[in-house]
Amino acid sequence: MTRWLPRTYLTLVYLLLYVPIVVLVVFSFNDSRTGYAWGGLSLRWYESLFNNRAMVNAMWNSLWLALSAATVSTVIGALTALALHRYRFRGKKLLNGMLFVVMMSPEIVLAISLLALFLLVGLQLGYVSLLLAHVTFCLPFVVITVMARLSGFDESLPEAARDLGASDFTMTRTVLIPVIMPALLAGWLLGFTLSLDDVVVSTFVSGPSYEILPLRIYSMVRVGLKPEVNALGTLLLVFSLIMLMLSQWILIRSKR
């Protein structure tokens, strides 16, 4: 079969995927207020972004939330993956299935169920409720990432450690953790990004005491064309690109 047809097709789809992103980046440097026409090069939208106190505050809140949600979910997720990998126990299939269901569930279903729970137990909506919700939807992704790493892992190593008299816990700490480190980092980065991007769940479980970036962006884009959004989007893009390259670099390096 001719080779140019598939290639052209691939190129075309990639173009479509990237046009909006390129437009966003280019327009973030646009001086014009109206948003559609080109009015010259300018950094004014970046400037106005950083002069907006509420915006900067929401940025810090979001970063802090993403940092903590990624960390907590990585700790719990990694331990779960280890347990699933190493031990036989009753309900193992159920646990696996449940994590899969959480991953597949539409976010909105998760969102309202958590809202119902938080209201029932009287938890104030704010940082804590956001953290619990974000950890919940990040968890299965961390488990999967770590499991993938473990399944390709040479079983003779822990056996050897055990033969040498190491307890399970010591073995985990000294042998397993270093091996799964790349997966931990990749899972952490994935959780970080998921948390930073989430609108649907956060809409339901956030309160006025803790404003976060995605909700701030949401209220901005609903008002109409705001050039500040382009600037913010570009910053977020650069930020996620760095994170993504970092995680790929870690994964590739670990394979060698």
Partner: peptide
């Protein structure tokens, strides 16, 4: 109504 006690508005 939803936030009730935790509504800090």
């Amino acid at each position: 109504k939803l936030l009730d006690d935790s509504a800090a508005y």
